[in-house]
Design a protein around this nucleic acid. Structure first.
Lengths: 242, 242
DNA sequence: CCGGCGATTTGATCGAGATCAATGCCTAAC
DNA sequence: GTTAGGCATTGATCTCGATCAAATCGCCGG
């Protein structure tokens, strides 16, 4: 079901000479020499909540590994309506290979730390390393699956089902354990109500009302608006529409 | 904007020894020897409208090149609600590399002709040929872009904007020319009202009403319910919400 | 030509979620 | 502690699209 860990071709984290983080993710596909070469070109960057990594239709300046935090991918309409079309968590790889322009805008949803690489260095490496390309293909296939799952949610679920699905999605990222039995899970939402609404194709008021309903039904606890406790995750699943 | 043609690593169509069609698409990435080997394992299949290529959560029996027709990718909820999460046209490649189960069900929306290959043969070839993997990555990235574009439509557009966007999408597949100036385009819809509704996250009645509205506004002509004429495609764009 | 059947259109009504409008809550500055 | 300002909740109302129901169209077989 969840092949997230499968994205890492190598499970051995590698110490980056530039940003001093231990990389996993796509970098695991490289051999030692390639890694050293790549990491000499890397830079560690810290981004505040709301900071823009790549603007829509802007030239892409590089690629990045997310070390911590959550990045949202946004598409907007000319009149200002917005839809979040993807969420990226560590250790996802950020960037659009073989395209000079981005179709989406990428923004930090929380404080984010990335290790970024110049476009040219990564693309040269992709040409050399089928392993890296294989790794990118796997991540892209996973993102495609996630996008299609979300299309079902956007097109066919009710507001209540959408919010329940969202909570389960986040709970699963925080703690990828199997929540089919009844262990409690607690976590902080990495997004504001407005961002949740833009992810679910709803308004903030509707998101708030559905959370209230779930709270009153005793399925979730909400504290300080961001902190969520699921006493019984499998019960929440019955609200998510499958 | 549209890098569809870019998917074909080679522009030279190759005659398939088995199905006697000239392949393009992903097969273009192979060298002559590899092609011959692959094509000896291929079979040409004709599928009636509605035929299922791959069921949800079924084992994937193989891969296929679409030679003609339209294939819809469907995701469903336990209670029967359905969402079309992707459309594939010739010469798209059909299949989910590196996964034993399909996350979606694939059905023929029109009569479809495919040239199918056994799973094993294709996967062996992917291992040998970085070119093929590169080609698959490009197709997957394009599908991801399309999925994300459609998420914006599903989450944030009105029913009228959705229907207008759908007509422009189909018009663009039929004739990938630039429709920004005012040349008329005519085509047959490859899908029923129910399928359009399942693609747009609407009901058949709403789809029908929006088409009627566009017809009364003089933006489109509708004949025999499937045949559409856009006298002025750029005018339809103003209805699509950007 | 006629009847039948599925697909589509049109009509009437309903309701989920949007919109408009307060009100309440948490944090930060002073 | 007090106040200001951004977020979130709650309430009242409206609207778009769903639902229920009834024609109408198009096509095929007799």
């Amino acid at each position: 079901m969840n092949d997230r860990q499968d994205v890492h071709t190598s499970d051995v984290p590698v110490l980056c000479v530039a940003c001093e983080a231990r990389h996993r993710g796509v970098c695991g596909a490289l051999d030692a020499d390639q890694l050293v070469a790549l990491m000499k070109t890397s830079t560690k960057k810290r981004l505040e909540t709301g900071a823009e990594l790549v603007g829509d239709a802007e030239a892409i300046e590089g690629y990045a590994n997310i070390l911590s935090g959550v990045v949202k991918l946004i598409k907007g309409l000319p009149d200002g309506r917005e839809q979040i079309v993807g969420l990226q968590f560590a250790p996802d790889f950020l960037g659009r290979p073989f395209q000079s322009e981005s179709a989406v805008s990428a923004q930090a949803a929380t404080n984010v730390v990335v290790c970024s690489f110049p476009k040219r260095a990564v693309e040269a490496l992709i040409k050399q390393s089928p392993q890296l390309e294989h790794s990118l293909l796997k991540q892209t296939l996973r993102e495609l699956d996630e996008a299609r799952n979300w299309m079902l949610t956007l097109g066919r679920k009710s507001a209540l089902e959408k919010v329940a699905s969202y909570l389960l999605l986040i709970a699963n990222y925080i703690d990828p354990a199997d929540h089919s039995h009844a262990e409690a899970v607690a976590f902080d939402l990495p997004m504001s109500r407005l961002e949740i609404a833009d992810f679910l194709g709803l308004t903030i008021e509707t998101v708030s009302r559905q959370l209230t309903k779930l709270r009153i039904d005793g399925v979730i606890q909400v504290r300080q608006s961001r902190h969520i406790v699921l006493d019984n995750p499998s019960r929440l699943k019955t609200y998510s529409g499958g």
